[in-house]
Structures are given as C-alpha cells and as structure tokens.
Design a protein around this nucleic acid. Structure first.
Lengths: 207, 207
DNA sequence: CCATTTCCATACACTAACGAATGTAAAAGC
DNA sequence: GCTTTTACATTCGTTAGTGTATGGAAATGG
C-alpha cells in the first residue's frame, strides 16, 4: 500500500479512534483486539501500531478527544450568574454539564469508561470518576454556602446537606441514564428533578 | 496429591471462591487468570477445573454466594411497617438495604461487579444493575403513592417526583460510597441524607 | 528530479492462557 | 478388603493476541 498525504493520515487516525469507540462499546475494552479495531476501520494492525504505541496509548488518545476543561465550564457559569443568585448558578452549571454529556461523543466515551473497561495500564477509571466527583462537589459546596449566606436556603438545611443531596442525585441520575441513554433525556429529566429539589430547599416564603 | 474428604473438598471450593474475590478485586476480572486464582488459594488449576467449568462458571458461583432475595427484604419491611406509615416503610427498607450492602462480602462482590469487570459470558453487570434498580424503583413508587394518599407528602410533590429523587439519591450515594468504601459508612451518611430528604418532602405542618 | 521520509501492509517470533488428557492416591461404597 | 469414584496435580496441544521487523510505494523536501 502506498503512503498517504498528511491529511489522509490524520483521517485514518481519527477513523481508528472512531472504530475503537465502536468496538469498545460493543465488546468491552479488554475483549477487543487491535486486529478487530483495525478491521473495523478498514485497516490492518500496522496502521494501529504506526499511530499508537499499544492499546493503552490508543485508549488514552480516545479520552483526549473528549477531555473537557471543567474549570472553563465553571468559570463561564460563574461569570454569567454569580451576580444574581448562587442557586441559579448551580442550576445553570448542572444544565450545561448535562447538555454536554448528552452529546454522542461524550456519552459514548463515558459509557466506555464506566461500563466497558476495567482499569488497565496507567488508566484508572475510578480515579477519573473520583476527580470529576470531587470537582463538582466543591463547586456545589461553595455555591450552596453562598446561597445560605444570602438566605436562599430554608432553615434546617445546611449547605453541607444540600450539597450532598444534590451531588448524590446528580451522580445517581447520571448512572441511571448512562445505563440506557436511549430511554430518556438526561437534560430534560435532570432539569425537572433539579428544579424540584431546589424548590424544596428554598425558604417556604420565596415561592 | 491425595483425595480429600467431602468436607475438605467443600472447603477448597470456598477457598477458591475467596481467592477469586481477592484477585478479582485487586487485578480486575479479565486480567486475572485461573492460574493466579488457584495459586492464591494454594491450589493448582486442576482444582479450579474440577469445581468449575471455566472462569464464567466460577464468577457465577461468586454471585450466587451473595444472591440476596430482594423480595424477602421488601416483604419483611412491609410486614413490619405497612400498618404505620409508608414513609417509615421506605426509611426502614433503605436502612436495611444499606446495612446489608455494607457487609464485606456484599460490598466486595458489588465492587467487582461494578468496577472490576466488563460483561463476559452470560453475565451482564448492566442487566443485573438494571434489575436491582427497577425493583427498588417500583417499591419506592408504590410506597410513595400510598404516602401521598395518606397525606404524608407535601403538596406540589408528586409520588413520581419523590420516587425519582430518592431513587437517584440512593444510586448516587451507592456509587460514591462504592468508589471508596473506607471513607465513610454508607449506613450513617445514608440515614442522614435520607432523613433530610424525607423531611423536605413532608407537609410543612407535620414537623 | 532525486533522495528521503512517511504511512501503512505483511510476515514473523513469542508469550500467556485455555481446555483437555492423563496420572494418582486416598476416600467411599459394598 | 476390594473396587470404584473422587479430588485434585501434572502435562500437553492449541490458539489468540501482542510486539517487532521488514517491505514498498507514494508523498514530501530540497
């Protein structure tokens, strides 16, 4: 086979990553061979070993394609809503996050990470889940604390409890949805649950 | 090596299952060989292939050891609390479930199922999670519906929303805890969150 | 326009793991 | 007490997957 142009080479690299996404989702990471990935992309293992060192390196590249700068998302939210109300900032942050996660590429990669792979090489899904979990927890906590200071939380509901409640609800919703993403829209159901929970947290006279 | 008595044979079978639990947790299911399991139990692969057909059969036996009859748990709860209040029945069911899950054997097997294995053979962790999820959802829904009929839910909170909120919170708490079971007790933190959420759901005058 | 590099295909060696076959000594059954 | 069965250990053949080495043709740079 002949050498490709640079654009073609970049295209086959993307095709390999796309194929890996497909086969990983279908068969699980450990059960898929590099041969299967190459065949699914219309290539051979030679192409795989040219673009990536091994399966772990390929997997790492898969994650890189969806690496979302979490702090950017937080900053954007805070810029637009910190002047108004912390609870509204929380609402916007959650909605934006869910909208992003619903995009096919993000959804598929998270599905692979959580349901289709055990830890291997230098990649530990548990650590990645943990980091994301802690980040959202911290953001929620600071905003709920600010909300309490502004009197947006009902008496008897501490920022700590509010944070843990919402945090658990979000991760639970995420896992339930990820098991069957076709059954419902996480953005729609998430918004309903989020609004219900936030309404229950507000002081009784603010309805 | 000589033949063992029936009791000794049963003991080595349990030892093999114990060893499998250990190695599965440590290395993940797909990355552990039957040789490693056998060695960890002080045996050889011959013992493994005598007691089990293959790795899938061994894994199946692992699950059988913790197979909890969910309906029994539900019935026991309903027997003891259906006469009083549906919300109290929910509370008891959740507490009992969390206490059971906190036992080492249940915890370890669930950790393996969720974090340490991809689907393989006839075992699909997603299907098992889904069944458990649906069962708890149905139990919660019927009890929350009964609670609404008895006026135990605040106006504006439908049984449907209440069910989904608590259900998401429980699965989220479960996943958060299972990632680091040593960080906190799911029973203690779960009870606090559960009480907070149920308090927010009750009509305002019932405090 | 020529040498070199690139992008992949093909071929090869090597290993880990499986499953079956076989060996074996003691326990169970009668 | 003799045979049969059990409960493993040991050995062996086979295969799937990996990583590397080599080949080749076209693109790229000068």
């Amino acid at each position: 086979m002949a050498r490709r142009t640079k654009a073609e080479a970049a295209a086959t690299r993307e095709a390999l990553l796309d194929a890996a996404e497909d086969v990983f989702l279908e068969r699980g990471v450990s059960r898929t061979s590099l041969e299967q990935i190459a065949r699914h992309a219309g290539m051979t293992r030679g192409a795989v070993y040219w673009h990536f060192r091994n399966k772990a390196d390929l997997f790492h590249a898969l994650l890189e394609r969806v690496r979302m700068p979490f702090q950017d998302l937080v900053d954007k939210i805070e810029d637009s809503a910190r002047i108004e109300s912390p609870l509204e900032a929380i609402r916007l942050a959650c909605l934006t996050g869910m909208a992003r996660i619903e995009q096919p590429r993000y959804r598929r990669v998270h599905s692979i990470l959580i349901h289709r792979c055990e830890f291997f090489g230098d990649i530990d899904p548990l650590r990645m889940q943990d980091e994301l979990s802690n980040e959202t927890y911290q953001v929620l906590l600071t905003n709920f604390t600010a909300a309490a200071d502004k009197g947006e939380l009902a008496t008897g509901i501490s920022p700590d409890v509010a944070t843990r409640l919402l945090h658990c609800m979000l991760t639970g919703l995420f896992h339930d949805w990820l098991r069957h993403p076709e059954r419902f829209s996480i953005r729609e159901r998430g918004e309903a649950l989020l609004d219900s929970l936030l309404a229950m947290m507000r002081p009784p006279d603010s309805g």
